[in-house]
């Protein structure tokens, strides 16, 4: 394992009561990479992200970010340290306006001017959000809500962005658009850990990939290699 990885999970075990959701997971994400975590429903992908964000505490193992142990820290502290998450099922605040949702994304920042600049930046990435600025976020379409979730996570100016199923329930055209944006975000310097069921799309933009099956990492390697791996092809790419 790389010693100076941006994020490192070291033998993580997480349980919901008696049921172990993650068993001895180790993975690392280097600065500048897109790393994807693929696997079937219930394999433990979201649990992994929830553990990194501090929503779940690992029973065993440690999470290191920039070399520091962050396991067991509270979620808001982890955001302040530079990890933000666009949660599964979008998780927008339906009762707040689009703009207020973005403002919440920047909650732990104080520099008003650069927050304003970042807001304009996400409006530039997703112009539709600017149109919907004053609209209650609950009235946005599914695709728009997903754009808002990603934008909101970006507003924290994370070093590491966690994306949980950004393609879930979206039309193919919008998925393409969103994946293009994910790549752009990465090229502008944000490291990304992407959880996806849409393995095909994810492997095409990722540098590195891990395959998760019932709470265990069963396969890992360069995304390009996994795309050509016969087992992965059969199980996740539908070929």
């Amino acid at each position: 394992m790389n010693g100076d990885a941006l994020l490192k999970l070291d033998h993580i075990t997480v349980a919901y009561g008696a049921i172990k959701a993650l068993k001895d997971i180790s993975l690392s994400v280097n600065e500048g990479e897109i790393v994807t975590l693929i696997g079937a429903n219930g394999a433990g992908k979201s649990t992994t992200l929830r553990t990194i964000s501090g929503l779940l505490k690992p029973q065993e193992g440690k999470v290191y970010f920039k070399g520091h142990d962050i396991s067991g820290k509270k979620p808001h502290v982890i955001v302040q340290q530079g990890i933000s998450q666009a949660p599964e099922g979008r998780g927008i605040f339906a009762n707040l306006s689009t703009e207020d949702n973005l403002e919440m994304g920047a909650y732990s920042r104080k520099d008003k001017e650069s927050i304003q600049r970042d807001k304009e930046h996400v409006f530039h990435i997703f112009p539709i959000l600017q149109e919907r600025r004053k609209q209650e976020a609950g009235t946005l379409s599914g695709g728009e809500q997903q754009m808002l979730t990603i934008s909101r996570a970006l507003m924290a100016r994370p070093k590491l962005l966690l994306l949980d199923e950004p393609s879930l329930g979206l039309a193919p055209q919008i998925i393409k658009q969103i994946f293009k944006v994910i790549q752009e975000i990465n090229q502008q310097g944000t490291t990304i850990l992407l959880v996806e069921q849409n393995a095909n799309m994810a492997l095409h933009i990722a540098h590195k990939a891990y395959v998760l099956e019932t709470g265990k990492i069963v396969l890992q390697g360069k995304a390009q290699d996994l795309l050509n791996n016969p087992d992965v092809k059969k199980a996740y790419l539908g070929e």
Binding site: H76, V79, S84, G91, N95, E103, M104, G105, S108
Partner: peptide, 23 residues
Amino acid sequence: KTGKAMQAVSFHHENASLMGIDI
């Protein structure tokens, strides 16, 4: 900002904490 955070927390605790809000 604090008031909006109150609304966010009342909508969803976990997602609010993912914004960096100290619930």
